[in-house]
Amino acid sequence: MELNIGPVLFNWQAEMWRDFYFMLADEAPIDKVFLGEVICAKRAPLFYPYFDDVIKRLERAKKQIIFSTLAEISSDTDRRLLKKQASQKDFIIEANDIAALAHIGKREHYIGAYINCYNEMALEFFAQNGAKNICLNAEISKETIMELAKKAKEFDVKIEVQIFGRMGLALSARCYHARAYNRTKDSCKYICEVDRDGMELATLEGDKFLAINGIQTMSYSYLNLLNEIEELKEIGVSNFRISPHSHSTLEVTKIFRAVLDEKMDKEEASFKLRELYPNVSFCNGFYHSIRGCEWQN
């Protein structure tokens, strides 16, 4: 059973970003770290000064590094970044848009959650094209995961499922962080850096609803599949992904590691997660084929 850290989706200060990975390298009981800018091509260069240091530190700690690519490609800037990301050959690449597959060619790679894989024929296509790991979109329910995991076994492909953190629900060409400040994507001045876990969006009545992360729209609630882990293991899911947040991510990895290793029971883990995130609402609806925003006990 692998416990992995998905790419940082938010625009953190570069030093904070570096220190986060240093901390994971030194202390987190995780197997793989997915690195790379997935949301906005403009942000990517901000982290270049620390990339080599982060890679070195993670490698020294024997964490496997996977390069995650940009999820939406439209402008020339996007295309240039994608080419740079997907052409490097030192690390396995996780493709988040079909365009990445054109650069990857026949090399072994992973399919990320931003590429749609909802059925066994799609899975077969990706497997025959060289995919070794497929991270499923968070909206996919248990009965579909079950079928995909069965098929994945035939092709020696691993199925990965996000088990914690805000879920990406949509991508757009427009930057909604910039829009909130009457700017455009080109004139954004990196305003998204003010929200380290996304900008919370409430309805006119004040109901917490969504979170804005640049061009991405996320769930307000944090996905938490703690209660489903046992079943996920049973149906053939072997890789579990935590999507990082600005606080307590290290503690979260420790809790889920203990649960995966059956060293901590669900009740204790649940209590601890609640303690770490007293003001966060959790959801797990998609897994149970109900509204994604819901929490089913």
Partner: peptide
């Protein structure tokens, strides 16, 4: 939202666009 990449409706209704 970019087409084929939006699960906002599913988040609220349990019915998926995709």
């Amino acid at each position: 939202m970019a087409e084929g990449r939006c699960s906002l409706t599913n988040y609220v209704s349990g019915k998926s666009t995709n």
